[in-house]
């Protein structure tokens, strides 16, 4: 990361939250290494904003990042956060160790679709199963963007990527359904096109004691948008022949392609094919939480009960 530098040296940040971002704090300016049109800027910004507004204690809310494009969000998140960049897919496991060694903590885990549903699928399932008190944010851009646009477990049917050059023909992995089946107690999905909703969900997750899984649909213009212009599978993606080579068009597509959970109830499988269902899927605040339960075990072991 030797090339860190201010993007616009003389421009004053318009947004008050830019200065509390890590890059803003270090360099006095907004800086990131994300592509034009990437959704991670929005997410990083919202995270920073919430962190500042909610006055979260950085000592209690450590940030655990997996490997993906979003690792670059290090620069856009709040400067005070204590950050660990973990290995590919292992962020939930690392957070489990942190949480259990210091139960006052509530780790916030940034993971991607390939990170969490691909290589780290097992850790994700078992963290949800334990109902460990943490927040898992899955950023789903339906592509392996950091390595250059390979197909992901979440790549939509018919979409093109460098490893599915003709079209994607595998079934798609659904992070929300997986989290529900595994036993996460707060499960929601939204998109970066709905930032207010994301803030609402994130605030709720901060107050929730248990595993919160929020999947965020985010655009990747560079590798997903540009690849899927007029390809074989375009008809499955609802593209109707238009191009997705700018952020606006992708955001527009995401909006069109996502259906609220209340609406989805009245739709059949065919209509929901390749669509993102957004909304809250489960909120069970009173489920036993792992570190609390372990504290009870410690009490029993000491002869307390």
């Amino acid at each position: 990361m030797s090339g860190i530098g201010p993007m616009y040296p003389n421009e004053k940040p318009e947004n008050p939250y830019v200065l509390v971002s890590y890059a803003g704090h270090l360099l006095g300016n907004y800086s990131s290494r994300l592509c034009a049109g990437c959704g991670y800027g929005i997410i990083g910004h919202i995270f920073t904003r919430l962190f500042e507004d909610e006055k979260l204690d950085p000592k209690l809310y450590p940030l655990v990042l997996g490997i993906g494009c979003y690792s670059q969000m290090l620069l856009t998140v709040h400067y005070a956060t204590q950050k660990v960049l973990s290995l590919h897919g292992r962020a939930p496991a690392l957070a489990t160790g942190m949480k259990m060694a210091n139960p006052q903590m509530k780790p916030i885990i940034f993971t991607g679709d390939g990170d969490c549903l691909g290589i780290g699928g097992n850790h994700f399932i078992h963290t949800c199963r334990r109902n460990l008190d943490c927040i898992i944010l899955i950023f789903n851009n339906s592509i392996y963007a950091m390595t250059g646009g390979q197909g992901a477990p979440t790549t939509l049917f018919g979409a093109k990527s460098t490893t599915t050059p003709y079209k994607m023909f595998e079934n798609r992995s659904d992070g929300v359904k997986l989290a529900l089946a595994a036993g996460a107690t707060y499960v929601a999905r939204t998109t970066v096109a709905h930032p207010r909703t994301f803030m609402k969900y994130f605030r709720k997750a901060l107050k929730h004691k248990g595993t919160s899984v929020i999947e965020l649909i985010t655009p990747c213009v560079t590798y997903f948008g540009r690849k899927n212009l007029n390809n074989l599978g375009a008809e499955y993606l609802g593209l109707k022949g238009e191009k997705m080579d700018t952020a606006g068009k992708m955001i527009d597509w995401i909006k069109r392609n996502s259906i609220r959970v209340n609406q989805a109830k009245f739709m059949n499988e065919e209509e929901l094919f390749n669509k993102y269902i957004i909304g809250e899927f489960r909120y069970a605040p009173d489920q036993p939480e792992y570190s609390d339960e372990y504290a009870k075990i410690q009490k029993i072991a000491r002869g307390g009960i």
């Binding site: 450590p62 655990v64 660990v84 973990s86 290995l87 292992r90 496991a93 690392l94 957070a95 489990t96 160790g97 942190m98 949480k99 259990m100 060694a101 210091n102 903590m105 097992n122 850790h123 399932i125 078992h126 372990y294």
Partner: peptide, 22 residues
């Protein structure tokens, strides 16, 4: 805390996470 993790990868990562927080 003694945790039986889901696999070896998870156990070593949890160990490192725990060591990070002291």
């Amino acid at each position: 805390v003694c945790m039986q993790m889901e696999d070896e990868l998870a156990s070593i990562n949890a160990v490192i996470g725990a060591s990070l927080v002291g």
